[in-house]
Every structure is written in C-alpha cells, then in structure tokens.
Design a protein around this nucleic acid. Sequence first.
DNA 1: TATGAATGAGTATTCATTCAT
DNA 2: TATGAATGAATACTCATTCAT
Lengths: 194, 194, 194, 194
Amino acid sequence: MKKFTARQQEIIKASTELVAEQGIQGVTIKKLSKKIGISESAIYRHFDSKLDILLGILSQFRSHKMEVLDKIQGSGATELEQLEMIFKERFNQFTQYPAITAVIFSEDIFQNEKELADEVYAIMNSSLQLILIVIKKGQNNKSIRSDISADQLSLIIVGALRLLVARWRLSGFAFDLRREGDKLWGNINQILVN
Amino acid sequence: MKKFTARQQEIIKASTELVAEQGIQGVTIKKLSKKIGISESAIYRHFDSKLDILLGILSQFRSHKMEVLDKIQGSGATELEQLEMIFKERFNQFTQYPAITAVIFSEDIFQNEKELADEVYAIMNSSLQLILIVIKKGQNNKSIRSDISADQLSLIIVGALRLLVARWRLSGFAFDLRREGDKLWGNINQILVN
Amino acid sequence: MKKFTARQQEIIKASTELVAEQGIQGVTIKKLSKKIGISESAIYRHFDSKLDILLGILSQFRSHKMEVLDKIQGSGATELEQLEMIFKERFNQFTQYPAITAVIFSEDIFQNEKELADEVYAIMNSSLQLILIVIKKGQNNKSIRSDISADQLSLIIVGALRLLVARWRLSGFAFDLRREGDKLWGNINQILVN
Amino acid sequence: MKKFTARQQEIIKASTELVAEQGIQGVTIKKLSKKIGISESAIYRHFDSKLDILLGILSQFRSHKMEVLDKIQGSGATELEQLEMIFKERFNQFTQYPAITAVIFSEDIFQNEKELADEVYAIMNSSLQLILIVIKKGQNNKSIRSDISADQLSLIIVGALRLLVARWRLSGFAFDLRREGDKLWGNINQILVN
DNA sequence: TATGAATGAGTATTCATTCAT
DNA sequence: TATGAATGAATACTCATTCAT
C-alpha cells in the first residue's frame, strides 16, 4: 500500500532494531538519529512524528503478512494444509525478523496510542480470522473435528502459537523457532483431527 | 516471603491501579503520590526506588499465586480435577483483580530491567511448571493422553488461557471471564482425555 | 484573590522583566531559570506550565488594578475628579511597572492562547467599563457634555490613553509618562465639559 | 520604493494572511511554503531571510498608505475635509485587507527586531505626522480650535482611530468598520471645531 | 528558478531521585 | 515518618537556514 522512500525504510529498520534491543521505550528520536548517523531534525524530514515511524513498522509488517495469508487462502490446499502453511509462515517471518516480535506482542505499551493499538489489534486479528475461517471449512467437510467449536479451536491454536513465540523472545531467541513450531503443529494437527 | 508494611501495600495497590488505568508508563512517582495523597519524597521512605515498587507488585502477586497453587497440589484431587482447579483459580483471581492482568501480560515493558523481566518470567513459568507436573502424573496413570508430550500439552493449555485473558483485557473486561473460562476448560478437558 | 508564594512572585517578576527586555517571545523557561538562578525543572515545582506563569503576571496586575478602581469608584468624588483619578492611577502604575505595558498591550501575541487572550481582554475592558459608567453619570447630572454619546467619549478617552502609553513604551520609556498624562488629562477634561 | 517580483508579492500576501490567521508566530517558512505550494528552500530564492519577508509586508503596506496620504494632501480640500478623507481612507483600506491590521498593531512582537520595530514605528507615525500638519494648518486659519495643541488633538484622534480598529479586529471583524468610522469621525469633527 | 536533504540551536515539559528540615 | 525545594538527564518536536543538484 504505502510506499516508503529508502531513507524511510532505513529509519523503520533502525527503529525495529531498537525495539528488539531495548524495547519500545528504547525507540527515541535521539537514539534513532545516532544509529542512522543523521541529525534528530533530519528524521522529521522523513516522518512527521514518532507515531508515524512506529506506524510504519507495523504497516510494513502487516502488508507483508497480508500478502502471505492471501496467497495461502488462494492456494487450493486442504484446510489442514492451509493451517500448516499459516503456522510455518508465521514462524518463518518471525525467524527472519525477530525484532518484530517485540512490537507485535506489545499491545500494552501502545495502549495509550489509539492508532497504534488499533493497528496491532488488526494485525493480531488477521491471523485469527483466517484460522477461524479455515477451521470452519474443515469442520464442514469433516476434515476437522466438530465436537469443539471453531472459535474455541482457533483460540487454542493461536494461544499456543503466541505463547511459543513469546517464550522464544523472552529466551533471547535461544532456540530454533521453526523446529519447535513444526513440533507444535504436529500436535495441533493431531488434536484437530482427533 | 517479603513482608510489606501497610504503607507499602498501599503504594503497591495504587501502582497496580495506575498500571491498569494507564499502562506501565502511567506509573510515575508523581501520579502515585497524588493518588495516595502523600508527597513524592514520602514514597522514597517506603521504597528505595521505583524498581522496588514494581518488584513489589509482582512479588505480592506471585506469593498469592504460589499459595493457591500449593494448596491445589496438596489437595489430593485427581489430575484433571487439579487442572480444573488451576483454571478456575486463575480466572477467579483475575476477575477479582483485573488490574493485575495489565502487569502480568506486559513482559515487554519489563524487558530492559533484568530484575523485573526475571520476576515476570518466573510468574509466567510457575503455572506452566505446575501444569506440566500434573499432566505428567496424569499421563503416568493414563488419565491424560500420552500421544502428545506433557510439554506440548501444557504449552497449549497455558497459551489458550493467556490468550483468553488477554482478549478479556483488551475488550475492557467486557465479558464474563469465569464463564468463558469454564467453557474453555470443558474443551481443554476433552482434548486432554482424547 | 490568588496568593502567590515568594518563589512564585520571584518567577512572575523575572518573567515580567523578560517581557520588558525581549518581548513575550523572550520569556522562555531556560532564560527564566537562568535569570532566577535555579534549574529549569525547579520552575515547574512552582508553576504547572508556562501558561500559568503568564497568567500569573496578568492576574497580579489585574488584582492590583481592580483594587484601585474600586477605591476610586467608592470615593465619592465628582465624575470629572474620578476620571482624573483613573488617568493618574493608570499612569502611576505603568510608571512603576513599565515592563507590564509590554504584556497589557500585546493582545496579538496571546491570540493563540485563549486563556491569556481572555484575561488581557478583561483587563483592557475593566478601565473601559468604569470610564463608561462614570461618563454616563456625569452626563446625567450635566457635568459632562451629552451631545456625544458616552460610548464614543470613552472610546476617545481610552484610545488616547492607550496611544500615549504605547508611544512611551516604543520610545524606550524616554519621557515622563505622568507629566504627559497630566497634560493629556487637562485636554480631555476640556473636551468633556465642552 | 522597492519593487517586488510577482513571486515576492505572492509570498508577502501569504505571509500577511498567516499573520491574520495565526498571529505573527504563525508565520514560519514551513507554513508559508505549504500555503504557496513551493518548497521551503524556494522561498530563499526570493527573500534572503524571514526578516526580509516581514519587512516586505510592512514596506508594501507603507508605500500604499503613503501614496494615498500624498494624494489627500495635494487635493486642495479644506483641513476638516482632509482629515475626514484620511479617516475614510484608513477604514477603507482596513476593510479591504483586514489581515493587515494584525501586522500594524503588533508593535510588540517586532520589538526585538530593531529593523522591524523601526518600520512599524514609521508607519504608525506617518498618519500621525500628516494629521498633525493638517491640524496645524486648520488652527492657523481658525477652522480648528486652538485651545488644545495640535499634538494633543492628533494624539486623541489617532488614539480613537486605532482603538476602534483594534476592537474591530478582536471582535473578529464582526461589525461594519466603515459605518462605525463615520460615526466616530462625526464626533471627532464636532470636538475639533468645538 | 526550484528542490530534497540536512542541521544546530532551541522549546516546553517529564521523570526519578536527593537532601535539608 | 513526612515534606518542600531542587535537579540533571531526557523527550518529542520546531525553526530558520544552508547546500548540492
């Protein structure tokens, strides 16, 4: 959607790294400018405000995510395959951009900034909605168990996914997220088919 | 463990409320002093630093939680009953003190303060560990399925529990957490026994 | 009305001096703190904001002015005597606190700060209203000409008064405002009685 | 005097509007460039500094005013007629360009910039001087009262004129300045002939 | 004639903490 | 046990201006 200039992308990248290194509170214009090697005021030539920079991080992440989810949805794979693809994709993206996890899982810090909170919420929901839809389809064609509602199944699935990522982050990205993700999917799969 | 004076408890309580109302960033010595009705410097008579206040919040929550978990563990109930008790207990406590959820789920903000991060991590793990133990026992006496490892089952259980609470909080505590918790437990239970 | 602490009065005084020396734009927290010899943050222990400091200047000036005007109004002097007293009083106060003239005559700068603009407007109007009332009384008892309306007469009187003060200020307080004021009053007096 | 290019005039016009809308502080190069639709740096192709732009506003206003005053002076009308023409002319110009009033009456803000202050002072004096001359002539040929000095009479006249305009501006240009001006002139006229 | 990129100095305000009383 | 006064470091953001293209 939004196009970012090279400088803007550089700023977004540096911000994301700062988030990863020091948390959201670590993202200050001063640190940012020092990291990039330009003056503080120079940053304001590229973004109107700090909020816009943060929004930029999310926007870029979101559009990448959407693209992938769309592709999965249109892939013609079976429901279980689609769920597996979603799982793998999420863990792939996080492995590639570990810093982003700090942003995505920080509903709290954004609490006071309505715009940011909304965006984070939207990102969070996008997987959830897709998973819900896929599960419902799977239940219709009997490939997924129906004794537990789709709502509850997706709550369980997304909850596990999120907790795994949260642990990975808190561990300092110490384990192989993709391998653990595969393992988790195996078990989720088993639960889904009963 | 640690004993808090009346004043200290008052400060901890006010801090927790501030977290709930405005997020962790809302906890400043100034606001705290205004809320309690004493001077800013007075607060330093009771806590050496703001860090200690935050640690106080967690410590109090943790000790309360531990107590309950210990009781459950020693109750002689079956494994599934114990898990149900844990579920109910968590949701009960959160319903009673909704403010605390803001603290428990904000691993992020505490990230840069090693001491705080460790404490939050410990709290997060305490349920996880107990659930793990109970599940293992259940698997040993065949009351819980063994085709999925205890590690993975507990990840799934705690993940769902956390996500439900997170949603409740983001919704502004708009739904009945205990009822939704019961429903979730019903389904988790079904999954556990296969 | 409002009581100011010694420090607050010191800050108000320093601000007024800064206004006189460098215009309203010269009033910055930094310059203020340097002038007083305390830190910038110390100032915020005494006033919540810069706006409050500016409001403090006006408030102090206004209450002093009101006091004097009330006394004049209750003095039992004839209308023309009362008008003369008002004239003398205004020029006396300005001579005593030349700096304040910069604040009182700067409706413009306060334009964007509603609160300040209102206060300045109120101060400006307080003399005007009193003068209008006194003139009306004088017209009723024939001591002041009636062929020109009280509105117009007060417009003429206040206009001259303000222009004289404005010139005085722009001249760098180079002439004796009280002497010029007396001269002006003599002529205004003559016009009023025709 | 100075000739301005089309672009320069455009910039001066935009600046004047900004003054009217947001006060002198509202005149920033950024806002100016946005209003005109060119880049910030482009503005520096046409004016060496912001000071020059402000000087431009005043200079343009002044030359226009001078022209008119010269015409009046050379018109051969009687002294009282000339004064009436001056009155009407001032109110006409202000009615046509209300924005300019904000600039003319903001001696204060220009205070710290010697060059600007001087120009404003000169503008302010130009009417005053002309009025003074005309009154003196009138006093010489007995068409204007001599019991009050020409200095004082012109102070009173200009003071009333300025206050009326100031009120008009503060009222948001809510009343018909020309009508009120005519009324004021009627009374001033009466005072002048005694 | 115009622009995009950059900057140094400033601007009000916040915050955790210290210290003398 | 409490307070009033003070502070240094930070924080997001603004502004007039410069320079290479």
